[in-house]
């Protein structure tokens, strides 16, 4: 089987759209609501989850034939927790500012359902290379939804993007107001609902 065979390509591309972990598998909703009030944290969270889901997929895939069936969930959790702790230590040592910004969210990656979902559904039954692609695909799929939701929430809720004011002062003087509801968690759920609606309307097979 070639490195970029049809199957491997699909492992990478389907989670981006038609099998998106957030909008189709409906996993990882909790963090999608929590970190999307601003674009910056959403981006970093997306990147961190992508790295961790890809690495843990590879590790579990390498171990898959040795893991005793009865304790497989525990082994998966130990691997994920160890990787998250290491990533968080590395962030603290080399990019302290980013780690301060992410604060508790890095630790929360351990509880992200996408990780356990991919480990159980894919890495336990596939080779490391395919698992890496699957992990990257799911990570990017998750990150893309986070970025879309955060884009609208920060733009409409705070009038800024990545912390920079994009709606000019003159518009506010004309009576424009930021939508306070946008920065509250319920609006993330409503936006997410809209994205799922659009996606399903375009693709009736889902």
């Amino acid at each position: 089987m070639g490195l970029f065979s049809k199957q491997n390509k699909e492992a990478f591309t389907t989670p981006l759209l038609n099998n998106n972990p957030v909008t189709v598998q409906v996993l990882g909703i909790c963090s999608a609501l929590a970190v999307t009030a601003q674009l910056g944290p959403a981006l970093v969270m997306g990147i961190s989850v992508t790295i961790i889901v890809a690495l843990s997929n590879v590790v579990i895939s390498l171990l898959r034939n040795t893991i005793p069936n009865r304790i497989r969930i525990i082994v998966q959790l130990v691997v994920v927790a160890a990787l998250v702790t290491i990533v968080s230590l590395i962030l603290k040592a080399f990019v302290y500012d980013v780690s301060v910004q992410l604060s508790v969210y890095v630790g929360l990656i351990i509880t992200n359902c996408i990780l356990m979902g991919r480990l159980e559904a894919f890495a336990m039954a596939n080779k490391p290379w395919a698992s890496l692609l699957d992990g990257l695909g799911n990570g990017f799929g998750y990150a893309s939804i986070l970025v879309i939701v955060a884009f609208f929430r920060e733009l409409l809720g705070s009038g800024s993007l990545l912390g920079y004011q994009v709606i000019p002062e003159s518009v506010y003087e004309l009576g424009y107001l930021n939508n306070g509801l946008m920065i509250l968690p319920p609006m993330a759920l409503i936006l997410l609902g809209c994205i799922i609606w659009v996606q399903r309307a375009k693709n009736p097979e889902l």
């Binding site: 005793p68 525990i74 082994v75 130990v78 230590l89 590395i90 603290k92 040592a93 080399f94």
Partner: peptide, 28 residues
């Protein structure tokens, strides 16, 4: 097998974390 496997996993992970943590503690 299950017990031995679990023990090895835990010990390996513990060593790994302790190593990374002490290697980076100065910088942190």
């Amino acid at each position: 097998y299950t017990i031995i496997y679990a023990s090895i996993v835990v010990i390996v992970v513990a060593f790994l974390l302790a190593f990374v943590s002490s290697a980076l503690s100065d910088r942190i």
